[in-house]
Amino acid sequence: MKFRTFAAFVGPSLFLMFVFIAAPLVSVFWQSFHVTKARFETVEVETCTPGFLKPTCVTEMVTRPVLDEHGQPRLETRFTGFGSYRNVLEPDRTLAALRDLDWRALLTIDFWKALRFTLTFTLITLPLVIGGGLVIAVVVNNVARSLRGPVIFVSLLPFIITPVIGALSIRWLFIGDGIMTAFLEWWLERDIAMFAQGGTIELLMLFYRVWHVAPFAFVVFYAGLQTVNQDTLESAIIDGASRWERLRYVVIPHLMPLIVFVALIHLMDAYRVFEEVVGFSSQAHVISLQWLTYDLLTPDDSGNRAISRASASAMLTMVGIVILLVPLLLRTWRDQRPGGPGGAGGGR
C-alpha cells in the first residue's frame, strides 16, 4: 500500500485522536503551570452613613475584582511554576508527616489519600479477578454443553452493566436495612452500618470491581481453555499426573499469555477507578485519583472550577499510568514488531 493511500485511510482517525487526545494533553500540561483568575485591585473607599450634625464617614481599603466594559470580571492568566502542584501535593504538610512517620496525617492530604486507595484497589483486585475468572472458566468448562450458553449469558450481565448503576445496585442491597445488611446482622448477631466507616465501603468497592471484571477474565480464559492441547493432557494422564498437577503444569502454562493480557488490561482499568466513588458516594471516606481530578473540575458552590489544580492532579495521575505502562509497551513491542508473531491487544 502506498503512503498516500495509507494516509487517506488512517487520516480521519488520526485527526480525531490528535485534536481530542494529543491536544488536550498539551493543554493540561500548560494549564498546570498557569492560573487564570479574576484580576483584583485594592482601592480606598469612603463610606458615609447619615448621622447627627454630620455624617459618619469611614475610609477603608477594599479589594474588588476589576470589571471590563460588560461588567464581567476581567480575567488574567499568570505563570505560577509549580504552584498548582504544591497546592495538590502540599509538600510542607507531607514532609512534616513523613518526618514524624505519621501515616494518619499524611492521609489527610487528598492526593496521598487518593493514591493510597487507587494503588491498594488495583493491587488487591488484580489477583482476585484473575483467580475468580480462572475458577469460573474451569468450572463452566466442566458442565454439560447445553448449560454453557445460559451460564455465559448470566455471567456477562455484571460485565456490561453501566458501572455507576452496578455500584448502585450493590449499594442498595446493603444500604440501611437492605437485605444483605439484614442478613449479616442476623448471622453475626450484631448491629452493622456498612456506610458509616471507610473500611466497609472499601470492601464493597473491591467486591463490586471483582464482580464487574471477573466475567471478562472468565470469557477470555474460557476461550483459551477450548484450545488446550488434548494430546498433552492425555500424556500427562498417562504419566500419572493428578487433576491438580494437570491444571498446574499443562493448563495454566497454556493460558499464561492470556493471564498476562487480562492482568495488563485490568491494571490500566483499575488504576482509573472512578465510578465506584460516585456509585457508593464514598467521597467522605475514600477517594481515587481520577475522582480527585473530577472533583476539582466540577464547579464549586460559587461556580468556579479549579482548572489549574485539576490539571496538576491529572499530570500526577499520568505519572502513575506511565509507570504501569512500561511493561505493557515492552510486551506489545515484542509481539507486534513488523515480522514479529503478531496478535495480542484490543480486548477491553
Binding site: 491536544a23 488536550p24 482509573r272 472512578f274 485519583l289 481520577q290 495521575t317 499520568m318 509497551l329 491487544g345
Partner: peptide
C-alpha cells in the same frame, strides 16, 4: 501509530476532560 494508540488507551479520561473543558 498502534503503539501510540495503546498509550492513548491507557490515559485516564479525567486527564483528557481536564484538557478539553477550558477550551
Amino acid at each position: 501509530l498502534l503503539i501510540v494508540a495503546l498509550v492513548f488507551r491507557a490515559l485516564p479520561h479525567s486527564v483528557l476532560v481536564a484538557g478539553d473543558l477550558p477550551p
